[in-house]
Design a protein around this nucleic acid. Structure first.
Lengths: 255, 255
DNA sequence: GGTTTTTGTTTCATAATGTGAAATATGAAA
DNA sequence: TTTCATATTTCACATTATGAAACAAAAACC
């Protein structure tokens, strides 16, 4: 993904401003009449009515038997999605910082999205040379430690589909570009409980990756350490696994 | 509250339609670029950009380091309120139905709102004569069983404030209209763990009320049985408490 | 390292869109 | 019943959001 200036532009859309004002008023009041909402938001009753009505059509707002306005079910659906992006990061960050302080290298949190992993959180050490992935950037599953574990979890037939779709493009000379190589590495990683990336995504960069699970045991993310290949030590595996376990525990994972 | 026709009017506001389309696309995709969002929603990129920007100003949407769009934190805040209105009802309903079937009278779920309780859910029996509160209607705290428990939870100084503000208007000859009477009743109710309404809101109607709590132990609602006074039996108290306990447990209450 | 391509951002003339005053309908209260 | 309060609909108007096009910035390519 390309990174743009991303300075928050200050212009806004009137109807959206008013809509949010109404939603906030509803959240504060609980359930209310049109009159109160109009007064509270300083909107003309007619205007408030029209906006509320439009929100009802989308399930953002609903009305009870008595005609009072309430926040609607669609908000719950939207928030459920927002929560995944938010909670995970908030929970993981302190643990990731601990891990970074133990080993002095960059620690990443990734999430699967289609045939790629997305970097959703990162903490880096204070060193001149370090590996740094931009939060929000992506990489194909087969060139990352975490990605290979995710593929392994999915099972052989899904891996074959993935191979067919993507043709396993090479990123470096070390990338596993054929089925046999890839399956062998994945199998080994699954049995070990952690995966390695030996300069498969970028020359000079090596990783150790493990999985993070939630209460239901489902994989929700991956935790990895990225370092210049000559600095990476396999002694770190224990620490990385320990950290991932703590994050999983926070997410409700029992095992 | 007055009850109006409340047939969903079908006219809508264009910007809100488009905004919701964008939010839905974001929820489906997880995190995406402007280009994908514009394509997915069939909006002009320029239009999508402006609407997204307006939502960012309100925290409904945010962007990560790489510039990708994500659902924002304000949705979580709104949803927290919506959840109380929704989950509570959904969780409570089957338990309320069970209680109604046990005793054959109307069962109400109420929530505090300012100096009143609001009826948020009701299940009634199949009988000719029964007590029926409209969902969404309100009653002052001091004339309802649940309301008196809520006042008791709040403590004496809050009760005094309440008395000052409202002057304890009388609804029937049985309404507690002076501080001493009210405090005595509240105190007795707290120690018993349930409250009664002996024709204090309406002549001929009597109630038994108890509190419902959430994971944090906070009071989130009240459960009550309303019956014609000559039919009400104090034997029901156990069943009412049992039902409230089950609802509290579903809300995460441990005690 | 320069060139092209892609994607994001800003501008601006235009008319479509949302606005609010006023009229109307509906329920509750008296 | 009549009165009153609130909700809903209508409609002429101008403010507002629109989208084409120009511009900027980053990535991809060579």
């Amino acid at each position: 993904m390309k990174k743009y200036k991303s300075q928050p532009v200050s212009s806004s859309i009137q109807v959206i401003d008013r809509m949010v004002t109404l939603l906030d008023a509803l959240a504060a009041e609980g359930s209310t009449s049109l009159k109160v909402l109009a007064a509270e938001t300083a909107l003309h009753p007619s205007t408030a009515f029209r906006i509320l009505n439009s929100m009802i059509l989308h399930g953002l707002v609903r009305r009870d038997e008595a005609g009072a306005y309430l926040l609607g079910p669609h908000l719950l659906r939207l928030a459920a999605q927002a929560r995944i992006d938010q909670d995970l990061r908030a929970i993981a960050r302190p643990e990731m910082e601990w891990l970074r302080d133990q080993i002095g290298e960059t620690v990443n949190l990734t999430v699967r999205q289609g045939d790629e992993v997305v970097y959703v959180e990162r903490v880096s050490p204070q060193r001149m040379m370090r590996v740094e992935q931009v939060v929000g950037s992506r990489a194909p599953l087969h060139v990352t430690a975490v990605g290979k574990l995710i593929l392994g979890e999915a099972g052989e037939s899904v891996i074959d589909d993935y191979i067919h779709r993507t043709r396993l493009p090479a990123y470096t000379v070390n990338t596993h570009c054929n089925r046999k190589q890839l399956l062998a590495d994945i199998q080994a990683s699954l049995t070990r409980g952690y995966a390695l990336d030996n300069e498969e995504a970028e020359l000079g960069v090596a990783c150790i990756g493990v999985l993070v699970r939630d209460a239901s045991g489902a994989v929700v993310a991956g935790l990895s350490v990225s370092a210049p290949v000559e600095r990476r030590k396999l002694d770190w595996v224990g620490l990385v696994q320990e950290t991932a376990h703590r994050i999983s525990a926070h997410m409700g994972y029992a095992g």
